[in-house]
Simulated scan of single mutants.
Amino acid sequence: MDSMVNFTPGPSQLYFTVADHLKKGFKDGIPSLSHRSKQFESIFARTTNGLRELLDIPSDYSIVFTGSATEIWERIIQNLVEEKSHHFVNGAFSKRFFEIAQQLNKKSTKTEVPAGSSFADSISIPEGTELIALTHNETSTGVSLSLPFIHSFKENNQECLVAVDAVSSLPYPSFDFTKIDSVFFSIQKGFGLPAGLGVWIFNRRCLDKANQLLAKGISIGSFHTLPLLHANAQKNQTPETPNVLAIYLLGKVVSDFLVRGATTMRQETQYKAALLYKALEDHTAIKPFVADKHNRSKTVIVAETGDRTEELTSFLQTRGFFPGEGYGSSKKNQLRFANFPAHSKEQFESLVDALSTFK
């Protein structure tokens, strides 16, 4: 086991091949590579083609790069909403998506439930809604929305676009892209890379919506509008000088994931999650924060640690395990454990063994 294992939900543990890819990238001059060069176009194509294969993204969906997933929140509202979006809020990050819509002067609405909870199976969407915004995995609370729940909105609200924040869940979930219009993530969580790159996946309906807004004279932003990102992506380019090194590294790690196999990674994620949840359920001093097993995230596991949070943190750190703090108001009474491909089964087994000795 490594001397230190970073279980923070992001930035999280680096995938074990990243250091070697980084060395090779520097040797080959990737950090100073022109983004208008044929070599960069090759890197862009290799990375997007790898993502398409790994995540089973249809050929008619575009893949573009931004500075972060936070940026994509804003770009989605600017490019896909003229007046109304509806947001499902069950934690700090889904709430921030909603707040960005408000800050951009949209008439946005929300369905909100308490932290640690999920939503009713059937929810009516307000009339006139253009975009339904869903957070698949709420990083602050460890609640995950079921794929059937996410996929249900397209059939029942065919005029709406459906956008999914999958920042702390991909590459684990297997989305049905026929039932969603846009998905996005950043690379410092499930892809085990340094922070600094967002990935935005969208279909033709999204592009058409952005062009419709433009035709009405509505501002949809400047250098990172959907039409401009799409037009550049068609040439394996970006509108601006991007994080070339991050795109290169993402392509390399995606290739590593493909060798490992998406099915294998998903099975290992489920095994590790089951192992840790069982340890928390059996413990006398700590427990899972999310009570309903059906709503528990497989990729961000939140432990209710109460007044023993600081003691447990120190106990784990002395053994080489560095958990993430609870988020916001839960900082002093919860710990969060990331469960990404960078975390091995052996590391989780050792973590569980350590927890069993904490009394």
Rank of each mutant, 00 (worst) to 15 (best):
S146R: 00
L161D: 00
P173R: 03
Y271F: 15
H87Q: 01
K110H: 08
G142Q: 03
F358T: 03
E268A: 13
G328F: 06
N236F: 08
I180C: 01
T225V: 09
Q234K: 15
L355G: 05
Q267T: 12
D208T: 13
N6Q: 08
S117N: 13
N6D: 13
F97M: 04
K216L: 10
S122N: 15
R75H: 10
T111H: 10
V300G: 00
G328M: 06
A166D: 02
I218K: 12
S144W: 02
T269E: 07
F149D: 03
A273R: 07
R336Y: 04
E268G: 08
T8M: 13
I43K: 05
W73N: 12
T264M: 11
S94L: 03
L275I: 06
T139Q: 15
V64R: 02
F322H: 11
L22D: 11
A338N: 09
F119P: 05
F88P: 07
V290E: 07
D20A: 14
L51H: 00
S122H: 13
T357K: 11
L147T: 07
G192Y: 04
D56L: 08
E127W: 04
E159L: 04
E240F: 12
T309V: 09
I63Q: 06
R296D: 06
Q158A: 10
K272Q: 15
Y172V: 02
A303F: 06
A45Y: 13
F348I: 15
G326N: 07
L104Q: 12
K38Y: 12
K287E: 14
I77W: 07
S108I: 00
N243L: 07
I286M: 07
A163G: 06
K154I: 02
K189G: 07
G116T: 06
G29E: 04
S32G: 12
T8D: 12
N232G: 04
I218F: 08
T66E: 03
H136W: 02
T284V: 11
D208R: 11
R308M: 15
D282W: 09
E240W: 13
A231T: 11
C160Y: 00
Q334A: 06
G91E: 09
N79M: 02
T139S: 12
